Simulated scan of single mutants.
Amino acid sequence: MFLHHFGAYLLLLKAVFKRPEKAKIYWKETMAAMVDIGLGSLGLIVIISTFIGAVMTMQIAFQLVSDLIPNSIIGQINRDSNILELGPTISALVLMGKVGSSISSQIGSMRVTEQIDALEIMGINAPGYLIQPKIIAGLLMIPALVIIAIGCAIVGGLIGGSLSGAVTAADYIMGITENFNGFTVTVAMVKAFVFGFIITSIPAYKGFYVSGGALEVGQASTQSVVIGCISILAADYLITALML
């Protein structure tokens, strides 16, 4: 069963990246998908990331109670944790629930109402027209959202640490500025690009091949989120093992 679905997934991707019939139409669809994925998820990412950064700062301060450890290390740990893991992975899991379920339900609804069949009858490459703009938008916007998430988490850590008294603003800023390794940002961006592809392609596959009615569309949307989250965690492990 796994090999069957994996093979169908690869064949769908092959059809998705065929040369478009009319580039102008694809460009408009890509811009619309970028607005939907990027701007539509911005507020959620900002709120979640800010609170995660604030909570992480307080938890790190609670665990590092020692006169031998400088308070600036709290900012350093929070920075590296958010860049390497919390920023990309938590954002991807949240976006899989929001963006992934939306993509799956949109395409699935078009399938059960025979709109995809109508596109194919008219000679339009339905996988390319419906899925390619969403994948391109995901590859462009999700890394941008991850960068924003990392920035908000670091700022949230500063605000949370200052308000709770866990660490002073000066110590926190010293921690996030010293001993910075730029390679961690490279790892985060690689994760973001891979996660962006997973978030858009797996739900699109589940929605494209759904059959039945509204109940099956809902089930496909749920399955796409579950499979996508597992795929994100597996990809996170592989990228970390290969790059670090």
Rank of each mutant, 00 (worst) to 15 (best):
I83Y: 00
V46N: 02
A126S: 15
G218T: 12
G7T: 08
F197T: 02
N71R: 15
S231G: 06
M141W: 09
P143Y: 11
T186Q: 10
E85H: 02
L93Y: 04
S224I: 04
S211R: 12
A220N: 05
L93Q: 06
A192L: 10
S91E: 10
I135V: 15
A153E: 06
I73N: 08
T89G: 03
S72Y: 09
D36E: 14
I199N: 01
V194A: 12
V167E: 12
K28T: 07
G87T: 05
Y237T: 10
V16T: 13
I150S: 05
I239V: 15
Y209F: 15
K191P: 03
I202E: 02
P133G: 08
G175P: 06
K98Q: 08
V55F: 05
I136F: 12
A137F: 11
L93I: 13
K206M: 08
L140H: 05
L64R: 10
A204N: 09
G123M: 13
F197Q: 01
P20C: 11
P127M: 07
R19V: 13
E114M: 12
V194G: 04
Y26S: 05
R19E: 12
Y129N: 06
A33H: 01
T89F: 07
P203Q: 08
G196W: 03
Y205H: 14
S102N: 14
A149W: 04
W27L: 14
P127H: 05
G75I: 08
G196E: 01
G212M: 09
T222M: 04
A54K: 02
G151L: 14
N78K: 03
S211H: 10
A32F: 01
G156W: 09
R79L: 14
G87L: 08
I135E: 10
L163W: 09
G128Q: 08
L244G: 09
F17C: 09
I47W: 03
I198R: 03
I131L: 02
D80Y: 03
I47K: 04
E120A: 11
L215F: 15
L11F: 12
S201G: 05
M1L: 11
D36N: 13
P203T: 06
I37R: 07
